[in-house]
């Protein structure tokens, strides 16, 4: 009887992780795409030097997010681990985290009226939040604010 109830509990966790997790993921992805389109006019680039010679002011901007995996993803990744290969559930997780962090950095930059962010660096850290892995992504860069905007 104990074995059966354990199995039922496990299946419930898997199911709720799958249903709620995938709904949340779809919603998040949608909002990321929407905001990315909004911030298309404010690019974030990796080059170490600004692309123009106009006078400008600069400011350090950062954006960070902690995103957790769900129970179903964790279980699925465990299965994939047995056979090797691309762990797609985590790929999508880390992709969302990185894009969200970039967006938050851009939000901060847009509040400063910056025209773009350069010298962008990423920092990723695994966080042990219970049994289910979570990760933090930090994006930071230099926001360039043109000083002759009104000229």
């Amino acid at each position: 009887m104990i074995g059966l109830s354990q199995i039922v509990f496990f299946v419930l966790l898997l199911l709720s992780g799958f249903v709620i997790g995938s709904v949340a993921e779809r919603r998040h992805r949608k909002s990321i795409i929407k905001r990315e389109l909004q911030f298309n006019a404010l690019p974030a680039i990796a080059s170490r030097r600004p692309a123009e010679d106009r006078p400008y002011a600069q400011m350090l901007v950062t954006g960070s997010v902690v995103i957790g995996s769900d129970y179903f993803k964790t279980f699925l990744s465990g299965l994939i681990n047995l056979f090797g290969g691309r762990v797609t559930p985590y790929e999508s997780l880390i992709d969302r985290a990185r894009r969200e962090a970039t967006l938050r950095m851009k939000e901060q930059a847009s509040q400063l009226n910056a025209s773009y962010v350069f010298n962008v660096k990423f920092e990723t850290m695994r966080i042990a939040a219970g049994r289910v892995p979570a990760l933090e992504v930090l994006a930071y860069g230099t926001a360039l604010v043109a000083t002759d905007q009104h000229a």
Partner: peptide, 14 residues
């Protein structure tokens, strides 16, 4: 956070 981590998504507290 550990409750939240069953279902995935952002862990705002962290």
């Amino acid at each position: 956070a550990s409750l939240k981590s069953l279902f995935g998504g952002e862990l705002k507290g962290y």
